[in-house]
């Protein structure tokens, strides 16, 4: 008896899932790349842009997978450079402007803590492609988290000025952390098929870990407040348009450009 041959069906949810991971990495990578040549020290400039390159590399892998699943059969490049702002599926946190070093580090710390926990589960995904990409990305993200954690501690437990500024960033960016764990139908479907973990379970671990680092760094966890959502569905803030414009302009002016 032979098994019936499974005909691959265009899977909209899995496409959306891969696209969200790709967009998170691409947009955060683009934000970090804005530090290129402007880092507080040459060495930190290198560290931030190395992380940016890691993220853009990961974005490329997720885009390639999304491209395979895309009903419209767009290429990885087309997904990155020829979609408009409202078609991006990244969380709001990663598009927030750099503002100052404290904001950049806080944004990174919130995201890295989430990214680390997520990839740690995705390496056991039922989806082989997701597993493969996550295994590669996990080691890089473990380093990202180490870097941002060290800086949260240094700035929090540093001078009065560094403490004040990172505490401000922690409070201001807090309203974007809820979306990381707010499941919608795509997340529910991915959890049902054991492609991805249950986000609400991750949130408990995340909160515990973030809080324990804040304690070490003499920083306060913000009060619970209204959480912003919408990024995963394509509703972005006003700074996102500038980011997308800068990122895409070259490709849009020279659509056939080749290396």
């Amino acid at each position: 008896m032979s098994e019936p041959i499974a005909v691959p069906q265009p899977d909209q949810s899995r496409f959306d899932f891969a696209l969200r991971l790709a967009d998170n990495c691409l947009v955060l990578g683009q934000r970090l790349a804005e530090w290129c040549g402007r880092g507080p020290e040459l060495e930190e400039d290198m560290a931030l842009t190395n992380i940016a390159l890691d993220l853009i590399g990961q974005a490329q892998l997720w885009f390639e997978y999304a491209s395979e699943l895309d009903a419209q059969q767009r290429s990885a490049d087309a997904l990155a450079f020829f979609r408009d702002q409202n078609e991006f599926r990244n969380v709001l946190l990663v598009e927030q402007p750099n503002h100052d070093f404290g904001y950049t580090i806080t944004r990174q710390f919130y995201f890295d803590s989430f990214h680390y926990l997520l990839l740690n589960e995705l390496v056991a995904s039922t989806d082989q492609r997701v597993r493969g990409i996550s295994e590669m990305a996990f080691k890089e993200v473990a380093y990202h988290l180490r870097h941002s954690t060290a800086w949260v501690c240094r700035l929090g437990d540093g001078t009065a000025e560094s403490h004040r500024r990172i505490q401000q960033a922690i409070s201001d960016l807090w309203c974007y952390t809820g979306e990381l764990f707010a499941p919608d139908t795509v997340d529910a479907e991915m959890f049902r098929d054991r492609v991805a973990p249950d986000l609400s379970r991750l949130q408990i671990i995340w909160l515990h870990q973030v809080n324990s680092i804040f304690k070490q760094a003499t920083l306060q966890l913000p009060e619970s407040i209204w959480m912003q959502t919408g990024g995963k569905q394509g509703a972005h803030g006003e700074s996102m348009g500038y980011l997308v414009g800068e990122m895409q302009f070259l490709r849009r002016i020279y659509p056939d450009a080749q290396w």
């Binding site: 040459l42 060495e43 930190e44 290198m46 560290a47 190395n50 380093y143 060290a150």
Partner: peptide, 13 residues
């Protein structure tokens, strides 16, 4: 600690 991390980024990329 920072020196080791910076060295990783500057000299061991």
């Amino acid at each position: 600690k920072m020196a080791i991390e910076n060295a990783r980024d500057v000299y061991a990329r």
